[in-house]
Structure formats: C-alpha cells, structure tokens
Amino acid sequence: MSKWNAFPHDAAAFDYAGDKLWTHWERLHAGDQEPWPEDEASQDAWRAYHRGDFQNAVALGLKAETASGMNAANKAQSIYATYLVDDEDEKKELFEEVADRAEVAAKENPNNVNAHYQHAYALGRYSQAISIAKALTQGLAGKCKASLDKTLALAPEHAEAHIALGAYHAEIIGKVGSMVGSLTYGVSKDAAEAHYARAMELIPDSAIARIEYANGLLTLFGNKRIKDATKLYEAAAAREPLDAMERLDVEFARSELTDD
C-alpha cells in the first residue's frame, strides 16, 4: 500500500487515548450508531480514525479481525477517499475496495449495521465518481438503496443512513427529473427533505447533516433554495469539530461559502 496523504490539519484536539474514547463515544458515534468495541485492537483502530490517521486506522481495523475493526477500516478509507484524494481513478479504486469488503462483512454478519451502511456509502461515492447516469445504468442505485434500507431496518435512528437516503432521492431527481425519478425509481423531493430533516433531528450538532442537506436543496431546487442552503453551510462552518472527519466537514462547508 502506497503512503496516503496526511491529515492536513492539527489533530491534537482529536486524541482519544485511553478512557477518552469511551467518554466521548456516544457523541462521536451519534451519526452511525456504532456499538462500543470491547477489544483493544478495534478501539485503537477507531482512535486512529478519529485523529485522522486514516491509513493506520485501515491497517489496525483489518488486523483486528472484528466487525467493529472492519467498520473502522471501511469508514477511514471512505472518508480519506472522499476528502483527501484528488485522483479520480484512485478514488474509485478505494471506494470499490470498501464496497467489496463491506458486502462480504454484511453477508457474514447480517446484523452488522455499519457493514450495510458502509456498503451503501462506498457505492454512493463510487457512483458520484463515475457519474450518477452511469451508476443508474449499472444498477448501482438499487444496491445502494437496498443496503440503506437494511441499515435503517436494523437501526432506525442511524442518522448517516438518513442523510445518504436523502442524497439518493435528490441525486436521482437531479439527474432524471421528478417525474421519471418517481415513476422509475420511486424517489421524491418530499422524501429527500424528510430524510435530511430526520438526520438533523437525530444529530443536531452535526456539520455533515447540514452540508448534505444544503447540497440536496441545491440539487433539487437550484437557486430557489440558495438562501436556505447558504444558512446550512454557515451553520456547518461554525461547528466545533470533535474529530478529524468533522474537521474535514467544517472545512468543506467553509470552502463552499468562499466559493459562493
């Protein structure tokens, strides 16, 4: 494995050594509902993930050979690919690896909530990388939706799955329109907003919930909802991040405001 890009921000505040991880676990994992791992190996993988040491988190997570370790590895690789990789071919390869690992993990342990979620997340990001139109043609949308539905069947308060389902509805409508989207894929603007709103209820302090809601509004309504989207970006940019992923989220929101 080639050396990955380093986390580009100060990670001193994201050190969850020892009991700190347990103390902050509920807040750190409010979005993905990941259960507390009892083994030290998986805990160390999550510590590496939260401080932005994504490559080490993948290595530790896979070495742990546990469900939680695998989830840590998959989340670390997906977040790294989302934010810290510019090369599109590399992005696609990383997301494909996660999707494959998560699919196997979900089959081996059907009750592993985040195996289903990480499968959907990686497929969704891969679909964005190849274009939503190609993803629809290849049937990836249906696979993504099935994994998200399974996630919420197991964990109805999985906020990140609600965010992803909001994006699922929004991006299909953005590509094929409301009528075709409704008739062919069963998507709607109302459902998209409902999923985003539910995520906001579940994780009210989250930057990513606001960012994805803003993205969805712009995809669905364009400039008609730009004021609402801007307010969401502003609120996301003002959040105080608790870990590396949240820092990357906040920086993304700030960049959207600068671009505007």
Rank of each mutant, 00 (worst) to 15 (best):
Y16C: 04
L136G: 11
S255I: 02
A199V: 01
V180I: 11
I203R: 07
E171D: 12
A214E: 01
G166P: 02
G216D: 07
S2W: 13
T230D: 07
R254L: 05
W25F: 15
K3F: 09
A191V: 09
D260F: 15
D259I: 10
A59T: 12
V85T: 08
N215K: 04
Q138T: 10
G61Y: 08
E160R: 11
A159I: 06
F7T: 02
D89Y: 03
R210P: 01
D10Q: 07
Q77N: 08
K150I: 05
S78H: 04
Y80K: 06
D190S: 14
L202S: 04
L154W: 11
A159E: 02
A153G: 09
E96N: 13
R225L: 10
I172Y: 02
E240M: 14
T82Y: 05
D260W: 12
T23H: 09
R210C: 11
A72P: 09
V250W: 04
A244P: 00
G186Y: 08
G177E: 01
E256Q: 14
A106K: 14
A67R: 10
F54M: 06
I163D: 08
D149F: 02
A167I: 04
A192I: 01
G61N: 09
E103F: 08
L136M: 11
Y213V: 08
L232M: 11
H24F: 15
T184G: 13
P110V: 06
S255Q: 09
L152F: 04
A161Q: 07
A141I: 15
K75E: 07
L148N: 05
N111R: 04
A236K: 07
T137I: 10
Y121F: 13
S131A: 03
L242Q: 13
R254M: 05
L242G: 15
V58C: 02
A59L: 08
V187K: 02
A57W: 01
I130P: 00
K175D: 08
Y168H: 00
E88Y: 07
D100M: 10
G166I: 04
I173V: 00
I132S: 13
G31A: 06
Q77H: 00
A238V: 06
S131D: 06
D259W: 12
I203C: 14
P35A: 05
G124N: 02
K189E: 10
A17I: 03
H169K: 06
G61F: 11
L148I: 08
M1R: 05
K231W: 13
T23Y: 12
N56Q: 15
G174D: 09
V180D: 10
H9Y: 15
A30I: 11
F14C: 03
A41W: 06
A122L: 03
A244I: 05
A59Q: 12
I226H: 09
I203H: 02
D15H: 06
D249Y: 15
A141Y: 01
E256T: 11
Y126S: 00
V104M: 06
K143S: 03
E160H: 13
N109F: 15
R47W: 09
G52W: 10
A73S: 07
D19K: 12
A170I: 03
M70I: 10
G166K: 05
E256P: 00
V58A: 03
F14T: 00
D249C: 11
G166E: 04
E103W: 15
A197D: 11
A81M: 02
N71E: 10
Q138L: 14
D53V: 10
G31K: 00
R254F: 06
S178A: 07
T23R: 15
V176E: 00
A76W: 05
K224R: 14
W36K: 04
F14N: 00
